[in-house]
């Protein structure tokens, strides 16, 4: 915001005394400010109306007791204290933590695949195109699709039986542990292509000679991956981690909706599905909002780092 970046002064300004110059410049600055304000207005209005206002209303509703269609009354922290005694809520956040714990897999699997493709194996363009296809399919569609694939006598179990792994042919969506595992695996199937694409984009910015040296060097694949490629890809790895950290819970909603509906029991109950269930099925809006706010805090805590990173990237001056 220094003087030197101001637009070139108009010729007339050169002959006039300093004071008016400053005044016209200030006037021009003021005009530019108002113009800028006008430009950011639509975005601010959108973010305000559809994000901030609902969030604030959510907070106020969370302090009310409002069930069914009746009137609501102030309930203080009742909804929040109730959460700590509600096994379903506790289970949902425990499951959320379990899902978050799988993040390393989300970060490493696409990275390995991207590096393999980047080595220009025969048909690499085909693989690059194919890997992105699952991501283009709507999660709700993916969910319904996999309900059939994972069915007790579906193709997965048929395959396991033919290769002699009969004991592994489970009722995938019906076991306490296998249900959450299947859910996360399906989610990974649905999103890994985006990661591969992101990493390939990052790899393209690294000069080929550098990578080639790393690829051909005697060192083993994994060592090269973590000691050469990852450090050079740092910004991309950071970006993808950020996206996964803030997104992984959110991405699961349509899959839960189609695959397990939170069951069996509370095995795949996650906060975002519980909010939906409490609010629209049990019509307990106050309690639903309180769980929603808890979810917001949970996601916000995970993505604090992401936002800080994005803010720094977005406001950094190019070198």
């Amino acid at each position: 915001m220094s003087i030197s970046t101001a637009p070139a002064a108009e010729p007339a300004a050169a002959t006039t005394p300093p004071a008016p110059v400053r005044r016209t410049r200030r006037f021009r600055h003021a005009r530019e400010w108002w113009f800028g304000a006008l430009l950011v207005l639509p975005a601010l209005a959108l973010a305000f109306t559809f994000k901030l206002v609902p969030l604030v209303r959510g907070v106020t509703t969370s302090f009310e007791s409002s069930s069914g269609f009746g009137d609501s009354s102030f309930a203080g922290f009742d909804n929040y204290t109730r959460m700590f005694d509600d096994p379903m809520v506790l289970a949902s956040f425990r499951n959320a933590l379990l899902v978050v714990a799988t993040l390393p897999v989300w970060i490493v699997v696409p990275l390995v695949l991207a590096v393999l493709i980047h080595q220009r194996a025969p048909g690499w363009k085909f693989f690059r195109a194919v890997y992105f296809i699952p991501y283009t399919i709507a999660p709700i569609v993916v969910g319904i699709m996999f309900r059939q694939i994972l069915a007790p006598d579906g193709p997965i179990n048929a395959l396991l039986r033919t290769v002699g792994l009969e004991p592994l042919a489970l009722e995938w969506l019906n076991g306490r542990n296998s249900a959450l595992f299947s859910l996360v695996a399906v989610a990974l199937w649905s999103f890994f292509g985006l990661g591969v694409m992101t990493y390939l984009a990052g790899l393209a910015t690294i000069p080929d000679e550098v990578l080639e040296a790393a690829y051909l060097d005697g060192a083993g694949f994994w060592r090269r991956l973590f000691s050469v490629v990852v450090p050079m890809l740092r910004p991309t790895v950071a970006y993808w981690s950020v996206l996964c950290a803030s997104g992984v819970l959110i991405w699961l909603f349509p899959l839960i909706y189609a695959l397990t509906q939170g069951g069996p029991g509370d095995a795949t109950m996650l906060p975002e599905y519980l909010v939906f269930l409490t609010t629209f099925q049990f019509l307990d809006r106050g309690y639903g909002s309180a769980i929603g706010i808890a979810l917001f805090v949970f996601v916000a805590l995970i993505s604090v780092f992401s936002v800080r990173h994005m803010f720094k990237e977005g406001t950094r001056k190019p070198r």
Binding site: K51, G58, E272, L295, V299
Partner: peptide, 12 residues
């Protein structure tokens, strides 16, 4: 506002 998921504020 990225940290405000639609699921968390869906009713309001």
């Amino acid at each position: 506002t990225l940290t405000i998921p639609s699921q968390a504020i869906i009713y309001p």
